[in-house]
Nucleic acid binder design. Structure first.
Length: 876
RNA sequence: GGGGGAUUAGCUCAGCUGGUUCAGAGCAUCUGCCUUACAAGCAGAGGGUCGUAGGUUCGAACCCUACAUCCCCCA
């Protein structure tokens, strides 16, 4: 045989991916004769590179899509990338900085030119990497969230929602990212636990020399923005301060003491400094008590001139310095350690500052309601369903979405300001002008009089339209693609963007198509390392996916990831998993080598009816099981089913049963069945291991020009007659084989030392029927029947039957007796417990008849076994 | 602080409405094998009082209560 004993994936994989593309197997177009099956990719960042999370996520999508394709559906997997406004802009800014260019030196147009140049050069690498994984996307449909058509969709939606009154502009407290110098939405903020300090500051009471009011704060650098100190009206400690003023330490400005039940008496000193510009709660308190707002922070997190002190210094530097200065001034009572949380930016990791600013918002309440309903009533199913609770909690407490970002990389907000300070919202500048003229009555307004809003929209404001916009459903709401492919079927993504993205897509789908965007949402876990740590650059614990593919093959990596990836559970990645995947490829390869090497001889009789019938029963049961697992999105279990069928049932059992002696031909019918089985296995394995199955598909037989396993029909289960009996009988036969092998192991006989078997059984027909298999797999020369075992022999009991292997010189009577006695004791104990159960009147009254019947059967079986064991002991 | 989930073999997990020979899988472990498809392999074996304590029931890994530990989301 010339085929190598180990499978080498590298050449094979590149070859088949190219052929598939040449054949156009991944291209989808509306086809009324077929059912559509649609998946839209969660678009990765355009500048991203493939990491382990993508590998898992896209493997799952590919498995679903490939299976659907084989099931004869018009499978459409739409790929694409996301412009990721804040992340990409940050990268471009950093890159320009390296070249000595500052963003502030550039115009918007110049900056965008740089950004696009960079995007064209490095963008989309990730899509090429997905091809190496085997992803069967329709690449002709590749979209980008900032391309003209998708931008058009974004602008249309903005204008529409504005006209419906769902988008508004207003001053609100927003999350300000001083690093990205932009507002971000609540969902982009991540709370982190930190060990912080609590500073106790002394505010002098005006007009009462030597009297101080002590205020505890974790942010002493904001005292310059204080406008009041608040205490609880029920707090006797401070009742005397009614109508008094206190002086801000260092600064000396006088501020009132106010009373509000909001203040907690047991936190800190019970006195709270009120800083409306830099804390949401303080802001609300300020509004209630009609207090001014003093904003002392600049956009980059330094103090501005309103602070008076420390102007131009960073807030954290000021915190350290002011503590020192307060100490020296005698105005710092003490500092305490204190466990706190800080809000950080999901993208830049910078500490967020609450900041009052003028931003655009989208009202969420009205849209959230129907989007919650469809999940509650399972129109959209979440897998696993535990995420339903999380989803509900979020949707019931949803807040308005801040959609404006102070960035350049993104869709510029289509709002146009007029000289009089009012604005209009329109799809184009020309439309805006018309509106402006109509609104003001000034016919002489020019385009140059209008100034477009400088801000761009949140990236998610384009992603939330993705399932519709990739099919041009906004520009052309009745086109053939959208009508056919929408709603999509399954969405595969991480739970971290359930609200960012999934919930909002549902809202957009219901708003613009009156239909949910997908029926199932499969939420993957996070890929962690073997110790359960997140993959991170600092730890260096994240393998390079492309290295893995090169080393283990894409098939090996794909199956490796899926071996341990139940939905919603984190996957603890271990190289052993990928090795297991690679080993499985190799197992399959060798099974193929064996079958391929057989010569058929048509003159030989068909001797393998039993194995052929048995494996068919196994195969059909496995197909049913796999379909069920797929139905429930249990991908790991579906893989495990076909893994065990292939490895254990096909290779370890079936092939060993039918394998002819070395260099002997095989009968033609057995070969025909075996080849057909192998083909079916290749089909069932294909979604998981597309490359090796395609390779073997073509190696196994001459194929027509379009005959690929990629488009082969998915096997349909047909229940064979007498399937249960076939399986049960073979189980008995294999138990006899296992008994023989156990004896070989115990007695240290090699696997090939010829032995004979004597059966004392009430099922002689079964033993006769399966004698060939028992002889072959057990290396048994001869099987005979007797009422008693030969003197010098080892025996084992199965059910009510006893089997003897004559072994002169290997018998240790005492040990045999001990072993049998132990078995007998166990069987008796079991029989007693069943008897007791059956003897219980209440059990007999309450148990269902089938349960009772089963218990009686158990008792009968146990008694037969006990009898056989007692006989065996007597025979010793 | 509010809400949710989890706790089953060394590890990762199944175990559907309580009852299939006193709880299963994969991996790992141990023993023996280079047996002519495959040592990336073959054959066999061991390993769990189902987090703890109560309760309901003829019967509990599964239902109820409390406690403990861990994780996630929100504040």
């Amino acid at each position: 045989m010339s085929l190598a004993t180990t499978y080498s994936p590298t050449d094979v994989e590149a070859k088949w991916y190219q052929r598939w593309q040449e054949q156009g197997f991944f291209k989808a177009k509306p086809n009324p004769k077929k059912k559509p099956y649609t998946v839209v990719i969660p678009p990765p960042n355009v500048t991203g590179v493939l990491h382990m999370g993508h590998m898992l996520n896209n493997t799952i999508q590919d498995v679903l899509v490939r299976r659907a394709r084989m099931q004869g559906k018009e499978a459409c997997w739409v790929p694409g990338t996301d412009h990721a406004s804040i992340a990409t802009e940050a990268k471009v800014v950093a890159l320009l900085k390296e070249q000595g260019i500052s963003k502030t030196d550039l115009t918007r147009e110049q900056f965008l030119a740089h950004a696009f140049e960079w995007k064209d050069k490095y963008g989309g690498i990730i899509l090429e990497q997905l091809k190496q994984l085997g992803a069967s996307c329709d690449w002709d449909r590749t979209r980008f969230t900032m391309e003209p058509d998708l931008t058009d969709a974004v602008l249309r939606v903005f204008v529409d929602l504005y006209n419906k009154g769902l988008i508004y502009r207003g001053v609100r407290m927003v999350n300000w990212d001083p690093e990205g110098r932009t507002a971000i939405s609540d969902e982009e903020v991540i709370a982190k636990d930190v060990q912080a300090k609590m500073y106790y500051l002394k505010y002098a009471v005006v007009g009462q020399e030597g009297q101080f009011l002590t205020v505890a704060t974790s942010r002493p650098e904001t005292i310059m923005a204080d406008v009041a100190v608040a205490v609880n009206p029920n707090d006797p400690r401070y009742a005397h301060l009614a109508g008094q003023k206190v002086r801000i330490p260092l600064l000396g400005r006088e501020i009132p003491v106010i009373f509000d039940e909001y203040v907690s008496m047991d936190f800190g000193t019970g006195a709270l400094k009120v800083t409306p510009a830099h804390d949401l709660n303080d802001y609300e308190l300020g509004v209630k008590h009609n207090l001014p707002v003093i904003d002392i922070l600049a956009d980059n997190g330094t103090l501005n001139e309103k602070a008076v002190l420390y102007v131009g210094q960073d807030r954290f530097a000021v915190r350290k310095q002011i503590a020192k200065d307060l100490q020296e001034a005698g105005l710092l009572e003490k500092i305490e350690e204190y466990a706190s949380i800080v809000q950080t930016s999901e993208r830049t990791k910078a500490v967020i500052e609450p900041k009052l600013s003028l931003q655009w918002f989208m009202k969420m309440e009205q849209m959230a309601k129907p989007a919650l309903d469809v999940v509650e009533n399972d129109t959209v199913k979440l897998h696993p369903p535990k995420f339903k609770n999380m989803y509900r909690a979020w949707m019931e407490n949803v807040r308005d979405w801040c959609i404006s970002r102070q960035l350049w990389w993104g869709q510029q907000i289509p709002a146009y300001y007029l000289p009089d300070g009012t604005f209009v919202v329109a799809l184009t500048a020309e439309d805006a002008l018309q509106q402006a003229i109509a609104q003001t009555g000034k016919a002489d307004l020019q385009l140059s009089d209008l100034r477009q809003d400088e801000d761009v929209l949140d990236t998610w404001f384009s992603s939330w339209l993705w399932p519709i916009s990739v099919f041009d459903g906004f520009k052309d709401p009745d086109n053939a693609d959208i009508n056919y492919f929408y709603p999509t079927n399954d969405l595969v993504t991480g739970p971290d963007i359930l609200f960012f993205w999934v919930a909002r897509m549902i809202m957009a789908g219901l708003e613009y198509r009156q239909e949910v965007p997908f029926k199932n949402v499969y939420l993957t876990g996070i890929v962690r390392d073997a110790q359960g740590r997140k993959m991170s650059k600092q730890l260096g614990n994240s393998p390079d996916p492309l290295d893995l593919i090169a080393q283990y093959g894409a098939d090996g990596v794909r199956t490796g990831m899926l071996f341990s990836a139940p939905a919603g559970n984190d996957l603890l990645y271990d190289v052993k998993l990928v090795e297991q995947g690679r080993n499985f490829s190799n197992k399959l390869w060798n099974a193929f080598r064996l079958v391929k090497g057989w010569e058929a001889d048509a003159s030989l009789p068909f001797v393998n009816a039993k194995p052929v019938e048995w494996f068919n029963a196994k195969l059909q049961a496995a197909i049913v099981e796999m379909d069920d697992h797929f139905e429930k999105f249990r991908m790991s279990d579906a893989l495990m089913t076909i893994y065990k069928l292939t490895w254990d049932d096909f290779c370890a059992q079936y092939l060993e049963m039918v394998k002819p002696a070395y260099q002997h031909p095989i009968d033609a019918e057995t070969l025909r069945h075996t080849t057909a089985y192998l083909e079916t296995l290749l089909k069932l394995l294909h979604p998981f291991m597309p490359f090796i199955t395609e390779e073997l598909w073509h190696e196994l037989a001459e194929r027509g020009p379009r005959d690929y396993v990629t488009v082969a029909p998915w096997p349909r289960a047909t229940a064979p007659a007498n399937s249960a009996e076939t399986l049960a009988n073979m189980d008995k036969a294999l138990a006899i084989v296992a008994g023989i092998r156990t004896v070989r192991n115990q007695k240290n006989l090699g696997p090939n030392k010829p032995l004979t078997l004597v059966a004392k059984t009430d099922e002689p027909q079964l033993v006769t029927d399966y004698e060939g298999i028992i002889r072959k797999l057990g290396s048994i020369l001869e099987v005979s029947f007797a009422d008693a075992g030969p003197a010098a022999s080892v025996s084992f009991v199965l059910g009510g039957s006893e089997f003897f292997i004559p072994l002169e010189g290997h018998i240790d009577l005492a040990a045999e007796r001990a072993r049998l006695e132990k078995e007998l004791e166990y069987a008796q104990g079991f029989r007693d417990s069943v008897q007791k159960k059956l003897g219980n009147e209440k059990f007999a009254q309450n148990a269902k008849p089938e349960v009772l019947e089963k218990e009686r059967q158990k008792l009968a079986d146990a008694e037969a076994k006990i009898a056989a064991l007692e006989q065996a002991l007597k025979g010793l």
